[in-house]
Amino acid sequence: MVNKEKTRIMIDLARYDRQYGKRNYIINSYFMIDYVGRFMVGSFVSFSLCYVIVMTISVMCRFGEIMNETDITAIIKMFKPYGVYYLAGLVIYEVIVALVYAFRYSKGKRQIRVSTAKLKRLQKLQ
């Protein structure tokens, strides 16, 4: 006869494995700081690349202005705010990324605990 509870646990575990198994397997092999740090490095590269794109477009738009300027210090002064914007944007973006991945890590860990408890329960039923 089919054991209803056993079947239900097995369905839950199979569903968990399909939806979150792969992601949570990675989460389980990292400490939180390493997991978050890994994505922060990636987001640093992404943000910097995006900023280079924005800067290139901005330089193209101000090309005439730059060419007309003969003093190099004036050109440096012209681009000084861009450095500040980059740092400010980077800090905000990194904070968002850190928060998102810290949340995902905690959620993943919680899901792992629940699935482990279900596995133990399944073991007891056998």
């Binding site: 987001s43 992404s46 690349l49 995006c50 794109i53 924005v54 290139t56 477009i57």
Partner: peptide
């Protein structure tokens, strides 16, 4: 080029983590 840059920025900043 402008549109491509815009799409690339969306892909890198948003779709990379969501």
């Amino acid at each position: 080029l402008l549109l491509g840059a815009f799409l690339l920025i969306i892909a890198l900043l948003y779709y990379s983590f969501h």
